[in-house]
């Protein structure tokens, strides 16, 4: 396992906005076709770290960074790798479902269309497989022209996953995807994530420790902008190496 080359990797990454430093020298790795969970209390920088991999931070005012962020060994800020191309490769699902005010179909084929796919049959094919992989196909296959805003919260979030999958990314970044969902929708979402992990590399930010334990193969714990501990989930929860980790997972703070 550990012999695999990491798909995502940061090396001594410092990130900040203006005068505040949010990430303070983080080196972390995500291995191929596995779910890696980033956990930590609110404000520890886990979402910022996640957004480094598809450079979403670049749009925020005052953003700066030092250190390396690598995708399959290649620097994501490499001028030869256009921002848009990077994002075709690295999909992202946000904390709150953000379907576009378009039909379900248009939501899903949004990415492929951006990438220049025009063939109707290819688009239909992509639509179906993406929705199937996101476990949404059965629920919406008869109403693909309906507005995406009419779906329930859980459905919307899975639609967002389908939308991300439609661009056939190698990596999927999930930013607390279940935080706004009820337990049943959360279970369904987690099931989807586990299935997806067989094909894509997933980086999951969550502050739900049980979720990390249920879904992730590896877990990394961030605290105040620093990486406290990183390891296989089982050992991480059963035998934390750091005192801070132990205190966090036993619920003494956070």
């Amino acid at each position: 396992m550990s012999g695999d080359l990491p798909v995502l990797e940061t090396r001594r990454l410092h990130v900040g906005f203006g005068s505040t430093e949010v990430l303070k020298g983080i080196s972390v790795r995500a291995l191929p076709r596995r779910v890696t969970a980033l956990i930590g209390p609110s404000g520890c920088g886990k979402s910022t770290l996640l957004r480094c991999f598809n450079r979403m931070n670049d749009h925020l005012q005052g953003f700066w960074r030092r250190g390396e962020v690598l995708l399959e060994g290649r620097e994501v800020h490499d001028p030869g790798l256009p921002l848009e191309a990077l994002r075709f490769q690295v999909g992202m699902v946000f904390q709150k479902a953000n379907p576009f005010p378009l039909s379900i179909r248009e939501n899903v084929v949004f990415g492929p269309k951006l990438a220049g796919v025009t063939s109707a049959s290819t688009l239909e094919q992509t639509l179906q497989t993406s929705l199937q992989r996101a476990n949404l196909w059965e629920e919406v296959k008869d109403s693909l022209g309906r507005s995406a805003l009419q779906l329930s919260g859980g459905q919307q979030q899975r639609l967002c996953i389908a939308r991300a999958l439609a661009s056939s990314p190698d990596v999927l970044l999930l930013d607390e995807p279940a935080s706004a969902l009820d337990p049943i929708a959360t279970a369904k979402l987690e099931e989807t994530v586990l299935e997806l992990a067989e094909q894509v590399t997933i980086l999951l930010v969550t502050h739900n420790l049980q979720q990390a334990a249920r879904v992730a193969g590896r877990t990394a714990f961030l605290y105040l902008g620093q990486l406290v501990e990183e390891g296989e989930t089982e050992s991480f929860f059963s035998a934390p190496r750091e005192k801070l980790t132990e205190e966090y997972i036993t619920g003494r703070f956070g």
């Binding site: 598809n54 979403m56 994002r87 075709f88 999909g91 709150k96 953000n98 379907p99 949004f110 939308r163």
Partner: peptide, 10 residues
């Protein structure tokens, strides 16, 4: 969030 969603898709 909707703007971010579109940007994140490339």
């Amino acid at each position: 969030a909707v703007r971010d969603g579109a940007r994140a898709l490339g």
